[in-house]
Structures are given as C-alpha cells and as structure tokens.
Amino acid sequence: MNNTPQSNNVLEIRDLSIAYEPGKNAVNGVTASVKRNSITAIMGPSGCGKSTLLRAMNRMHELYPNIRTKGDILLDGQSIFSMSVIELRRKVGMVFQRPNPFPNMTIYENVVAGFSLNDIRLKKSQRDEIVENALRNVTLWDEVKESLYRKGTFLSGGQQQRLCVARAIAFNPEVLLLDEPTSALDPIATSKIEDLLGELKKKYTLVLVTHNMSQAARISDDSMFMYLGELVESGRTGTLFTTPKDPRTEAYLTGKFG
C-alpha cells in the first residue's frame, strides 16, 4: 500500500455500457462506486446484465472481440483501460460461478497457479508460505494439508470453490470479483463461503454478483439492483431492502419477478 491518502471508493464505474451485438446494450449507462473493505452485492433477475457488469471490472470481455465496452472504470482513481491488463487482473481477482480448479494441477499447484502461469519464480519456502496462508485464509488448510499433492478436482464442490478463492487471493489482490460463487453449491458449502466472504472483506474489497436476494441481504454492505441492463438503484443494503425507492426494486424484492 502506498502512503497517499486513498479515497474510500476503490472502484468508480462511469457511464459504462457494454454490448454483445451492435445497438443492443447488455449494460446501459451504469454509474456506480464500490467502497473499500466492503461487500457490494449486484442483484437482479437473469439476463439483467449483472455478470456482464462484473466481468468488465477485470476486462474479461476483451477475450471476446465482438463485445464492445464504452465508458470508464477507475481503480484507485486510475482508469483500468489505461493499465496493462495483466497488472489489472493481478489487482482484481475473480471467482467464477462453477468451481474451476485446473484439472491438470494439484491442490498446491492450483493455489500458486497465478505465479506459475505468469512465470514468476519463487523459492520453495516462499511458495509453501503462500499456499499455507491462502489455504488458511479460506479455511481449507486443515481439510487439505495432508493431500496438497493430489489433484484439486478430487475435492468436493464447496472445497473446490474455496480452493478457487485461495487461488485468487494468493496474489493478494485489492479487489475480488465473485460471479454467483455459491450457485452450484449445497446450503452447507454455501454458508461456509458466506462466512469466508465476511472474513475476507477485512483484507479485500469484494464485489458479489448473486441472484439470491437473501444472500445479498445476509452478507453485503452495499447493494446494486439491476434490471434490463440498467442500474435501477444502489445504496446501503439495509436501506435498499427495507425502503426501496424504485417500484421495480420493490417488485423484485417482493418476488413479483426474477
């Protein structure tokens, strides 16, 4: 961390529009901000653009040349589009909907995959330390310390997802993007992940996409509600859930659609 005073907002999204095909915006003119060391939930019905918005934050859309992005996103005041994409993705980690440990790697190798993929050479002792720390941080260490050299795909779904979180935080990113991280998990594994996220926000800033309203209510500090590509409403989670300003937010929260 540098010594210059940092604004409370880690991410600032400015008039962001994203189109998968010309003229049809999946995300339309979204302006929002994400506060440091908090969990910001992005909610909305399927197809509302919440994942699309999230994936803009680490420039994932650039893998698909047809996707057009307009507007800007600032990370600590600097436009992410002016950074090297590799540097950006090391600062902004990501966890996906379905657990996706690398099937050809062991648990140990999965945790340090970010380093090996980037050809960053580390001493064995450094790697051991990173692996242990990351696995402790996701409360997986005690479960897997005897089987670090087995393939990650042998773990249960919930364990795999925590392994994926460990892989993402091994780099010590600033922001962690989570794209419906519990939608493929059973309730017990889900609650473990939710507890984990509550711990992780002390160190990182988390942005969580979820279609599960009660999950957003349980663990998030701030919430955004998206509908048909637009950011309908955002604010403190407690306020948004109890006194929504927009009738569409209210309709969604009361189960009228979604």
């Binding site: 090391r90 990501m94 996906f96 996706n100 993929l117 980037n118 892989r167 993402a168």
Partner: peptide, 12 residues
C-alpha cells in the same frame, strides 16, 4: 471457464 480462470490470474 478454465481459460477464463487462467486469464483472470493475469496469464497471457
């Protein structure tokens, strides 16, 4: 999703 996982870790 595997490729995206690697890209999300900053891989080229």
């Amino acid at each position: 999703e595997l490729k995206e996982a690697a890209y999300s870790l900053g891989a080229t």
